[in-house]
Amino acid sequence: MPYAATTGRSIAAVTLIAAAVLPLTGCHHGGGSRPGAPTRPSAAPRPPAPGDRTACTPEMLRFHARGVRHPAHRMLLTVTNYSDRPCDFAAQPYPLLRLGPGQRAVTPAIGPSDPGTVITLAPDATAYAAVTTAADGASGRGERISQFGVALAPHTAPGQVGLDSGPPVRVNPRTARVTYWQSRREAALKW
């Protein structure tokens, strides 16, 4: 057999082997993929779809509370979303409050304060809830508090929220009520 023919077959064989091995090497190191092979999902976060919902969690929020002068016997609870994504209160539409150590059940909600829509917090947005601290004519009863427990879901341990400023607020846990979350301060304090 002539030398040129043998050399040509050897070069062709080496080229075919190289052509077969290179795609496999690329797959092994993540540089390529075989046709028909499943692809790995991208590590980049996907933007939320319109139907996606993220429940607000304590880690996403900052709470503030203070007594208000008008209307009387009220405390205002505010919550601000300081995360970089929107969240909502669809699962639990009002805060679950523990206003004193002897309180057996969470503070009931004021039913008519339900806004009828889910309150969603965009990043840096704030929601409000008012607490009636005493029933009319019962302001002398109860105890003075400077902090209280707030939970965002049933069967979770409440986090402690302290009053921002001013003296402690007198609260009667047996008669206190809380509004649903509201998107405006005025809407919360009208109850």
Rank of each mutant, 00 (worst) to 15 (best):
P58W: 04
I17S: 05
T6N: 07
V131R: 03
P173T: 07
P158D: 06
P50E: 13
R170K: 15
P93T: 05
V118Q: 04
H28L: 08
A37F: 08
T54A: 13
S42T: 12
A91N: 08
A55S: 14
T133Q: 13
L152K: 05
V169G: 00
V171A: 01
A49R: 15
F148E: 00
S10E: 09
I119F: 01
F148N: 02
D136I: 04
A135N: 04
A43F: 15
D124L: 15
V79S: 08
E186L: 12
G140L: 14
L96H: 05
L96G: 04
R9A: 05
P154R: 15
T78W: 08
G26Y: 15
L121D: 09
G8K: 14
T132N: 07
Q160Y: 02
V131Y: 01
V79C: 10
T7A: 13
A44E: 06
Q182F: 07
P71T: 12
A43L: 14
Q182L: 11
R66A: 10
A5E: 15
G32N: 12
T6C: 05
D124S: 09
I119D: 00
D84K: 12
Y3S: 15
V161M: 09
T54C: 06
Q160K: 10
A12W: 10
C27D: 09
R62N: 01
L22A: 13
L121Y: 03
E143D: 02
D88Y: 07
A176V: 04
M1R: 14
P115E: 10
Q103N: 09
A187N: 10
S146M: 05
G142Y: 10
L22Y: 15
T133E: 09
T107E: 11
A72Q: 11
P95N: 00
D136S: 10
R85G: 00
R40T: 14
T126I: 07
G137Q: 14
L121A: 08
R184T: 08
A134F: 05
P115H: 02
G26L: 15
E186I: 05
Y180K: 05
A188M: 11
P154H: 13
V106G: 03
S165E: 12
C87R: 11
L163T: 06
S83H: 13
I119A: 04
P47H: 14
T39W: 04
D84G: 12
V161S: 05
T179I: 06
K190D: 04
S83K: 10
A49Y: 08
R62S: 07
V68T: 11
P101C: 00
R104W: 01
V21T: 10
A65L: 09
L189R: 09
Q182P: 02
H70D: 14
P86W: 11
S33I: 11
G30V: 02
M75F: 03
S83F: 10
T57F: 02
L16A: 12
P112V: 09
